[in-house]
């Protein structure tokens, strides 16, 4: 397990290829090392609420961003979002949906649940890099989160 102390971004992504493309992109902006990747929603919830394998995780440092895919096995992105935004411990953590689909009902539902941003992953690598880089830099470098 990597050093959990320096985690700023949680990437929730079940597709290995998408995860790799995302991580590669973020690395270019020197964010990659501060990203922790989990492969599904259940693991994401364990991480966020320090359960299961993440009981020991140090939560003194607040996350700057959760990059959340929607369609995942076990617990989907919508459910993860609902839990995060419904819990006092996690609801101020910025959550950005990063998904393949521009399905209108997903956009509507995630906004209803309080998502901070909704991004559709482009198919072309150039566009993908552009978008992911912008998102990473914005939330990690530009945005401020409440303390505590």
């Amino acid at each position: 397990m990597r050093r959990l102390q320096s985690i700023d971004v949680l990437l929730v992504e079940d597709s290995f290829s998408d995860a790799e493309l995302t991580l590669r992109t973020l690395r270019k902006d020197e964010i990659g090392e501060r990203v922790y990747w989990v492969k599904d929603g259940a693991e994401a919830l364990d991480f966020m609420f320090r359960e299961g394998a993440y009981v020991e995780r140090d939560s003194s440092q607040k996350l700057l961003l959760v990059l959340l895919d929607l369609r995942m096995p076990k617990v989907g992105g919508i459910e993860v979002l609902r839990r995060l935004k419904g819990d006092i411990r996690t609801r101020t953590t910025p959550v950005v949906i990063l998904t393949s689909s521009d399905e209108p009902r997903d956009i509507a539902e995630t906004y209803r649940l309080g998502v901070n941003s909704y991004i559709v992953k482009p198919v072309k690598l150039a566009a993908f890099r552009e978008v992911v880089s912008q998102v990473g830099r914005y939330w990690v470098y530009a945005n401020q989160v409440p303390a505590g």
Binding site: S17, L21, R71, S101, D102, E103, K121, F128
Partner: peptide, 21 residues
């Protein structure tokens, strides 16, 4: 169509992305 929307694009992104890489 929901499934198409979500699942059929990731492989394409991988094909485009990794061929580019």
């Amino acid at each position: 169509s929901y499934s198409v929307s979500h699942d059929l694009r990731a492989p394409l992104r991988a094909i485009d992305g990794f061929s580019r890489l």
